[in-house]
Design a protein around this nucleic acid. Structure first.
Lengths: 113, 113
DNA sequence: AAGCGTAATGTATCACTAAACATAACGCAA
DNA sequence: TTGCGTTATGTTTAGTGATACATTACGCTT
C-alpha cells in the first residue's frame, strides 16, 4: 500500500478586484444571517470585528448588489442582514465548493505514488 | 452580462507531514532536472538557494524513494539530479493539476452571479 | 596544496497579513 | 440627556514566511 498521499486544495470566487468569496467569507455571511450583526458573527467564529468588517466591505464593493445591508445606531445599536443577493452568492459558492470536494476525493484515489 | 467572476484555486499533494508537492515545488524539480544543481535551479527562478534546499529536503524526506539525488564536492562542486521517482512525482502532479485547470474553467463558466 | 562551485546550515532581516487596541459616530430607549 | 451595542476607522502590535547574509564541508582539478 502506498504512503497516504492525497490531493488537497482551496478554491475561491474572484472578481476584478481580487477575492470575492472564499470559504471563510461565506461562513462569515452565514453567521451574519444567523446572528443579525457583524460583531456577533465575528465573535461566534473568533474573528476580530475589524477583520470581519473589512471582509464584508470587500464583498459589498465587489458585488453588483450588496450582500450585506448594515444599519447603525437604534435599538440594539444597529445590525446587519444578509440580502437576497447574499444568499445567492453563498449558494453559488457552496455549489462550486461541493464539486471541488468531490474532485479532490476522486483524484486522491487516483494518485499513484 | 455578469461581472467577470471566475473560480480560482490551488491544489497540492499532501503527505503525513504536510505539503509534499505543489506548483512551485514541481517547477523547482523540473529546473533541477534542467540545470543539474539546486543552486542553478534556484537562480533560474529567482528563488533563494536556502529556500530551494529546504523544499528539496522536505520532498525527499516525505517520499519513499528520494526525488532528488544530491552530491557534494567534486568537479563542478557537486550537483543534483531528478530521480525516476522524481519524474513520476512530477508527472502525477501535472496530471492532477491539468484536470484541476479544466475543472476551474468549466465551473467558472457555470457561475451565475 | 590551493582553488572552485556546489551542498549544507545557522542567523538575522524584511514583508505582509492577521490580530489587538483605541476611539468616534450613530440612533433608539429609558 | 444618558446609556447601550453596533457600525466605522485609524493606529499599533504580533506572527509568519520569505529573503538575505554568512559560514562550513566537500571532493575533484590543476
Amino acid at each position: 500500500m502506498a504512503k497516504a498521499y492525497r490531493l488537497r486544495g482551496r478554491v475561491w470566487i474572484e472578481g476584478p478586484d481580487g477575492t470575492f468569496l472564499g470559504y471563510g467569507r461565506v461562513v462569515l455571511l452565514e453567521r451574519i444571517r444567523e446572528h443579525g450583526s457583524i460583531s456577533a458573527a465575528a465573535r461566534s467564529m473568533q474573528m476580530s470585528y475589524r477583520h470581519a468588517w473589512k471582509l464584508v466591505d470587500s464583498m459589498n464593493r465587489q458585488s453588483r448588489e450588496v450582500v450585506v445591508e448594515k444599519s447603525t445606531g437604534g435599538r440594539g445599536g444597529g445590525g446587519a442582514i444578509l440580502t437576497e443577493a447574499g444568499e445567492k452568492a453563498v449558494a453559488a459558492f457552496w455549489a462550486a465548493y461541493g464539486d471541488f470536494r468531490d474532485f479532490l476525493a476522486q483524484r486522491s484515489r487516483q494518485l499513484d505514488l
